[in-house]
Amino acid sequence: MASISIIIPHYNNYQILNDCLESLYESELHGAEIIIVNNNSTDDSIKKIITKFSNPIIISTPTNLGYAGGCNYGAKHAKGELLVFLNNDTEVEKEWLTQLIKTMENQTRIASVQPKILNKNNQKTFDYAGASGGFIDKYCYPFARGRIFNTIENDDGQYDDMKRIFWASGTGFITRKSIFNELGGFDENLFAHMEEIDYHWKCQLNGYEVYANPKSVIYHLGGGTLSYQSAYKTYLNHRNSLLLLLSNYNFINTIKFSIIRIMMECISCMKDLASLRFKHAFAQINSLLWIIVHPHIIIRRRKIIKKIRKKTDQELINDIIFNKSIVYQYFIKKNRKYQLL
Results as ranks from 00 to 15, higher is better:
T63D: 15
N64E: 05
N64Q: 09
G66P: 02
G66Q: 05
G66D: 11
Y67P: 01
A68H: 03
G69I: 01
G70A: 13
N72C: 06
Y73G: 06
Y73F: 13
Y73W: 06
Y73H: 10
A75G: 15
A75T: 06
A75W: 03
H77N: 14
A78S: 07
A78Q: 00
K79A: 07
G80Q: 07
G80A: 09
G80H: 11
E81F: 15
E81W: 13
E81Q: 14
L82G: 00
L82D: 00
L83N: 09
L83R: 11
L86K: 04
N88V: 09
N88W: 04
D89K: 09
D89H: 11
T90C: 14
E91F: 03
E91N: 02
V92T: 04
E93R: 15
E95L: 13
W96E: 03
W96A: 05
T98D: 09
L100T: 03
I101W: 04
I101S: 01
I101T: 03
K102Y: 14
K102S: 13
T103M: 10
M104I: 12
E105C: 02
N106K: 12
Q107K: 11
Q107M: 10
R109M: 14
R109Q: 15
I110H: 04
A111I: 06
A111D: 06
S112Q: 06
S112L: 10
S112R: 08
V113D: 02
V113T: 08
V113Q: 06
Q114R: 11
P115F: 04
P115N: 03
I117W: 09
L118T: 10
N119R: 06
N119A: 08
K120P: 01
K120W: 04
N121S: 11
N122A: 12
Q123L: 06
K124L: 05
K124Y: 11
F126C: 07
D127A: 13
D127I: 01
D127Y: 10
Y128K: 09
Y128A: 12
G130D: 04
A131T: 04
S132K: 03
G133E: 00
G133Q: 00
F135M: 07
F135K: 02
F135Y: 15
I136K: 08
D137Y: 13
K138W: 05
K138R: 14
K138C: 09
K138Y: 08
K138H: 03
Y139R: 02
C140K: 08
C140G: 14
Y141H: 14
R147M: 07
R147T: 13
I148A: 00
F149Y: 06
N150Q: 10
N150D: 08
I152G: 06
I152L: 11
E153W: 02
N154I: 07
D155K: 06
D155Y: 05
D155A: 06
D156H: 15
G157N: 00
Y159L: 01
D160R: 01
D160Y: 02
D161A: 15
D161S: 15
